[in-house]
């Protein structure tokens, strides 16, 4: 199975935890006409990491990097969930049973249903198990 087409490039940006930092990042992406499709912020004492799926990850990376941001690519996968009770359980159980650890995750509920973005420790294994379970993985081309 070609798992590569399911690997999505997330951009991760280091940000100080203070007013205006997210606005500055969003402004930079807006200026380049980059659309943010999914997004989350993880915060710790004093700093945060902004994680986003965008339509042009390379362009976003270069723009933010040129502005001096610490920015990196991270491979994630996106799973379509049933937008109903138990939807998350199905996906999480598949990975749990396969011994795949979810390092972090965030979700959005879009036009065509709910989508779960996952950063896992074994990307290929996760893709195979999810495919085998019958759940739908979103291809990279959906995003960029």
């Amino acid at each position: 199975m070609d798992t590569q087409k399911f690997v999505i490039r997330q951009i991760s940006i280091f940000s100080e935890n203070r007013p205006g930092r997210l606005a500055a990042i969003a402004h930079a992406l807006g200026e380049e006409n980059i659309n943010i499709l999914a997004f989350s912020i993880a915060e710790a004492n004093g700093f945060g990491v902004v994680r986003a799926l965008v339509d042009y990850p390379e362009k976003a990376h270069d723009k933010l990097f040129s502005l001096g941001y610490n920015v990196a690519f991270t491979d994630v996968i996106a799973v379509r969930m049933k937008d109903q009770p138990g939807g998350l359980y199905e996906v999480a159980k598949v990975l749990g049973d396969a011994g795949v650890n979810i390092e972090y995750s965030y979700a959005y509920s879009g036009k065509e249903g709910a989508v779960l973005i996952l950063r896992v420790d074994q990307v290929d294994e996760a893709i195979k198990k999810i495919k085998n379970s019958g759940a739908t993985l979103l291809e990279r081309s959906v995003f960029h």
Partner: peptide, 12 residues
């Protein structure tokens, strides 16, 4: 530094 940036909070 850029080299030590990780998207995982714990690493930072």
């Amino acid at each position: 530094t850029k080299e030590s940036f990780s998207d995982k909070i714990n690493d930072i």
